[in-house]
């Protein structure tokens, strides 16, 4: 197997996803959990961008001095990139909501520990 930058980029995305899930599962501090979830979203975005990449290709912007066939054969695939733009914005907004909830909860409980705040007493 040839180790190229695309494959390595997939591995980077995969490790970010694993780090994110690990943080959300095992770290007790809520801010750290949310940092982990932000890394998870980043990893998925990187994964999608890497899919659209074409080794040795060009940016998908049509310049006046290009021919159509040259552009069609060499440009990277732009659809994933359009999706990631949306996904980044969604990620930032849900992040803001979560942090807002954490601030309110810290004011109520005086703690940031998930096992203390989000324990079993919700009935």
């Amino acid at each position: 197997m040839v180790i190229d930058s695309q494959l390595m980029s997939f591995f980077t995305a995969g490790s970010l996803i694993v780090i994110g899930i690990f943080a959300a599962l095992f770290l007790d501090n809520l801010i750290k959990k949310i940092i982990g979830l932000a890394f998870l979203a980043d990893g998925v975005n990187l994964f999608i961008i890497t899919m659209g990449y074409k080794a040795g290709g060009i940016v998908y912007i049509f310049m006046p001095n290009m021919t159509i066939s040259n552009f069609a054969q060499n440009a990277s695939y732009p659809l994933p990139f359009a999706l990631v733009l949306t996904s980044i914005v969604i990620g930032a907004s849900t992040l803001a909501v979560m942090l807002g909830l954490v601030i309110v909860l810290n004011k109520r409980h005086g703690s940031l520990s998930a096992s203390k705040i989000l324990g079993d007493k919700g009935e």
Binding site: L46, K54, F81
Partner: peptide
């Protein structure tokens, strides 16, 4: 920067603002 290398300059611009400024400031 990685997005820039992966031929996605417009996403790189957004990510540079969101990922390196907005998200850390939120946190």
């Amino acid at each position: 920067f990685l997005f820039q290398f992966l031929l996605a300059p417009d996403v790189a611009l957004t990510q540079a603002i969101v990922g390196s400024a907005i998200v850390p400031v939120f946190f």
